[in-house]
């Protein structure tokens, strides 16, 4: 499944942040999104995930194919690691959580309540959710926050395995994951700041 973005303009809080953005994401490839703080990386990823509409432009191939991981992990502290993963697996209609637990070395923590995990362990649990979604396109926003070096390696391995199975990934990150990935610098696509004129129509 190829994700194609053409002439995309996006806004945050009614102010356009990026305009004229276009790229292709083909199966088996990864794309790293770079750009200074506040340029609109998160807004871009949320738009691709369908959480907000674009101002203009087209996104094709995003319908029911994207597994999104944002700044928050969506973990319930009073459920155990297994219960958290099993829930997401059944929401996405997949059954097997064991590979996800193994990929992020969560087997020893499987029966622990997620509230008792460290920040890095929670992040690993949040990322392991991607494996149980069964979706081909991973859209990840700063996935390596609070991960240590070995956990970053685990994550890079998981992404490589996903790519080799024909999946693809769009990752906003500032660190080098050691992936064979193209870099998309969104800096040149910065929109001229101007208020959106038809705010009411857009709001409704």
């Amino acid at each position: 499944m190829t994700l194609t973005v053409t002439d995309l303009s996006i806004a945050r809080g009614g102010i356009p942040v990026l305009q004229g953005l276009g790229f292709d994401l083909r199966p088996g490839t990864a794309l790293v999104v770079r750009g200074p703080n506040g340029i609109g990386k998160t807004t871009l990823l949320r738009t691709l995930a369908g959480l907000q509409p674009p101002l203009s432009g087209h996104i094709t191939g995003a319908e029911d194919t994207i597994a999104y991981a944002g700044h928050s992990d969506g973990i319930k502290p009073t459920l155990t690691v297994t219960e958290n993963l099993t829930f997401w697996a059944s929401v996405f209609g997949t059954a097997e959580i064991r590979p996800a637990l193994e990929a992020f070395e969560l087997n020893d923590l499987a029966t622990r309540h997620a509230g008792n995990l460290s920040a890095g362990q929670k992040r690993r649990l949040g990322l392991s959710r991607l494996l149980v979604t069964g979706r081909p396109i991973w859209v990840l926003d700063e996935p390596t926050v609070s991960l240590d070096v070995s956990a970053v390696a685990m994550f890079a391995t998981a992404v490589r395995a996903h790519l080799s199975q024909g999946g693809c990934a769009l990752i906003a990150t500032h660190i080098d994951l050691g992936l064979d990935a193209a870099v998309l610098d969104v800096g040149p696509f910065r929109a001229k700041p101007r208020p959106v004129t038809d705010f009411d129509g857009d709001f409704l």
């Binding site: 944002g70 969506g74 502290p77 997401w88 209609g93």
Partner: peptide, 14 residues
Amino acid sequence: WEDGSLDLLATAPL
């Protein structure tokens, strides 16, 4: 909303 589950549920097949 706070723990991000709502975002993830909104992108889920449900």
